[in-house]
Simulated assay, not measured.
Amino acid sequence: MIAYLEGKILHKEADGIILLVGHIGYEVLLDTNTLSICMEKSQADETIALYIYYHVTERQPKPVLIGFLTPDDKEFFQLFITVAAIGPMKAIKALTKPVSKVARAIEDRDTAFLSQLTGIGKRTAEKIVATLNGKVLGFAAPQNSGSDLGSTNPQDFVPEGKQMMVRQVLEVLTQQLGHSASSARRMIKQALEKNPGINSPEDLFDEIYQETR
């Protein structure tokens, strides 16, 4: 199964790209934001790196590759398609807004915002909130744009490979221990800056509470 591709854009299509990897061209579907970023990178002659969701079913035996710029974007997509009546093809067309904003809308129960997504009506927006509310806080933009961190996603201040750990700690801090999202992000950021070698949720909690003693 294909999980990651890195190469140059051979051709732009309406809903994705043909990515040339070695001498093989892979047809990859992209959401509108990812497509725009990839085209900018291509114009700057940068290599395109994509994390791949591989979709194939008995009803659709032809493999479909869906690309994401970060592991977090791919993980959010995999959560998004757990909503009833939202399959991978519908989901990739629906994500016309940045993941951080969609996640924020889900956490805020903002069905009006979600209804603006392509193919998402009011009833589906309500299903999205009912299914995912409380599960996507780690992907969400801060409620206050003047956040202490000045960033919209954990990956903006977390080294690659530690996002999963940070999301786990962030959810415990906010949902179980009562910290605000901005306060939790600030504590995590300070702990990681003081001890960059942290590699587990337990070690991150230890460092956070050393800071707050």
Score class of each variant (00 low, 15 high):
Met1His: 09
Leu5Val: 11
Glu6Gly: 05
His11Met: 14
His11Phe: 12
Ala14Val: 12
Ala14Ser: 14
Asp15Met: 04
Gly22His: 02
His23Trp: 08
Gly25Trp: 08
Leu29His: 14
Asp31Leu: 05
Thr32Gln: 09
Thr32His: 02
Thr34Tyr: 05
Leu35Asn: 07
Ile37Ala: 04
Ile37Gln: 15
Cys38Glu: 06
Cys38Pro: 01
Met39Asp: 11
Gln43Pro: 05
Gln43Tyr: 10
Glu46Cys: 06
Ala49Glu: 14
Tyr53Thr: 14
Tyr54Ser: 15
Thr57Met: 02
Pro61Gly: 02
Pro61Val: 02
Leu65Asn: 09
Gly67Leu: 00
Phe68Leu: 07
Thr70Arg: 15
Thr70Ala: 08
Thr70Leu: 05
Pro71Gly: 00
Asp72Cys: 01
Glu75Lys: 13
Glu75Arg: 14
Glu75Pro: 08
Phe76Asp: 04
Phe76Cys: 08
Phe76Asn: 04
Ile81Leu: 10
Ile81Met: 02
Val83Gly: 01
Pro88Met: 09
Met89Tyr: 05
Met89Ser: 02
Met89His: 05
Lys90Arg: 14
Ala91Phe: 03
Ile92Lys: 11
Lys93His: 07
Lys93Ser: 15
Leu95Asp: 09
Thr96Gln: 10
Val102Met: 08
Ala103Leu: 02
Ala105Thr: 12
Ile106Tyr: 01
Glu107Cys: 00
Glu107Thr: 10
Asp108Pro: 05
Arg109Asp: 11
Arg109Val: 05
Phe113Trp: 06
Ser115Lys: 07
Leu117Tyr: 10
Gly119Pro: 07
Gly121Glu: 10
Arg123Thr: 13
Ile128Tyr: 09
Ile128Cys: 15
Ala130Arg: 05
Ala130Glu: 12
Asn133Leu: 03
Val136Arg: 04
Leu137Phe: 04
Phe139Gly: 06
Ala140Cys: 06
Ala140Glu: 00
Pro142Asp: 15
Pro142Val: 11
Pro142Thr: 01
Pro142Lys: 07
Pro142His: 03
Asn144Gln: 15
Asp148Cys: 13
Asp148Asn: 12
Ser151Asp: 13
Ser151Leu: 11
Thr152Cys: 06
Gln155Gly: 00
Gln155Met: 04
Phe157Cys: 03
Phe157Met: 09
Val158Thr: 04
Lys162Leu: 07
Lys162Ser: 03
Lys162Thr: 03
Met165Leu: 13
Val166Arg: 01
Arg167Asn: 01
Arg167Pro: 01
Gln168Gly: 00
Val169Thr: 00
Leu170Asn: 02
Leu170Val: 10
Glu171Ala: 14
Val172Ile: 10
Leu173Val: 03
Thr174His: 14
Gln175Tyr: 05
Gly178Trp: 01
Gly178Asp: 05
Ser182Lys: 13
Ala184Thr: 06
Ile188Thr: 07
Gln190Ser: 15
Ala191Tyr: 03
Leu192Cys: 05
Lys194Leu: 11
Lys194Pro: 08
Pro196Lys: 01
Pro201His: 06
Glu202Gln: 12
Asp206Ala: 12
Ile208Cys: 00
Tyr209Gly: 02
Thr212Asn: 13
